[in-house]
Design a binder for these strands. Sequence first.
DNA 1: CAAAAATTTTTATTCAATAAAAAAATTTAT
DNA 2: ATAAATTTTTTTATTGAATAAAAATTTTTG
Lengths: 204, 204
Amino acid sequence: MSTLRARQKEDRRKRIVSSAKALFKEKGYEKTTIENIAEATGVSGVTVHNYYGTKAGVLLALVVENDEALIARLNESLPTEDIDLVELVVSFAHVIMDHAITHLDKEIWRQVIAAVTTEAGTRLSEAYFRLDQQLAYVLVNRIEAAQAAGAIPAKVDPVHLGKALFHLQNARFVQFISSDAMSREEIETRLRNDMSALFSVCLG
Amino acid sequence: MSTLRARQKEDRRKRIVSSAKALFKEKGYEKTTIENIAEATGVSGVTVHNYYGTKAGVLLALVVENDEALIARLNESLPTEDIDLVELVVSFAHVIMDHAITHLDKEIWRQVIAAVTTEAGTRLSEAYFRLDQQLAYVLVNRIEAAQAAGAIPAKVDPVHLGKALFHLQNARFVQFISSDAMSREEIETRLRNDMSALFSVCLG
DNA sequence: CAAAAATTTTTATTCAATAAAAAAATTTAT
DNA sequence: ATAAATTTTTTTATTGAATAAAAATTTTTG
């Protein structure tokens, strides 16, 4: 039995995030105040704080919501056969960057990264990390498939490789959003260079 | 001829950063107010803002100062001969993590990372990135040396490899400071796993 | 030494964040 | 169905970061 209170709470949550998303898009992150979000939602400013703790908390909730769709999109758009490892990671990065800029602009993504690190250990940053984990495993799964198909040596640990490549991709993603002038093309080139260099080392 | 004004300015700058460092250590970052720093320095709160823009700006100035010493330390403590690539990067990471926690605690490093991303494009974040660049080149130089010694194949591009490995190391560093419970040992293990997996791929 | 220029301080305002008390709504028990 | 108990929201108030503009002070220059 879902009580009236539980339903009201869920409803308010949704409305707060939805108002926030609209306002962030319209006025940018810095310029929208908690009070703006509260007013647009029809609650008091303190209620927004009660629900999400901080303005960044509202933003993280919004991002986590969007990213569920990202994982689905990655799973369907990434190739499963004839996988070249470098191209796999570049496509992965491409989809992520495309998803990012169609939903929010770079200025806001910078706030997201900042919030995730300062709010380490809170409920919302945990949710964000779980999503990162899931993203990494999209890569891991494709690597396992490529290995099964014989495109990658059997001695390679797909979990470690997937995570390492995810971190690398993520570092380049942060670089992408850190400057408005940085293009996806440039980032993709850098990612290719990273991997070419790494894969040419060939230890034991 | 350095004018009196220039000298006073330089002096105030130093005193502000020095007071801030002491206060951050004593009370933590969140608990020290700009007003505290101003009072300890003997200037007004607005002056601190005039000098560094934000509280995070003061923190970045402090970090940049410390990191000059880090580069020197890395250059002397890292091996130049008989270099194993994996061990080189692990030592590199080890020195950086050690340096980090002896100077400031993890909570404060989280603020540093956050500040660098939100304040992208400002004078101080630029200075931080230049230092990151220099750090990456410490690695590049050692790789070049290892290559000259024949420990790494000639086809490897040392600049791309150095930067890629620096990014990887940096991602793990962020993971290190993101949780108080995360140990250096654990991070070093992960870094080894990352590299083992990457170096076992061996593309054409 | 006085006028000009630069810098700091004072003063004031907005907004995030937090806490505590008051008010309003829902739930539960009768 | 209603009154008491509980939960939730709102009101009210406070602290501190950030910013802006005017006033005061100090240094520089002629």
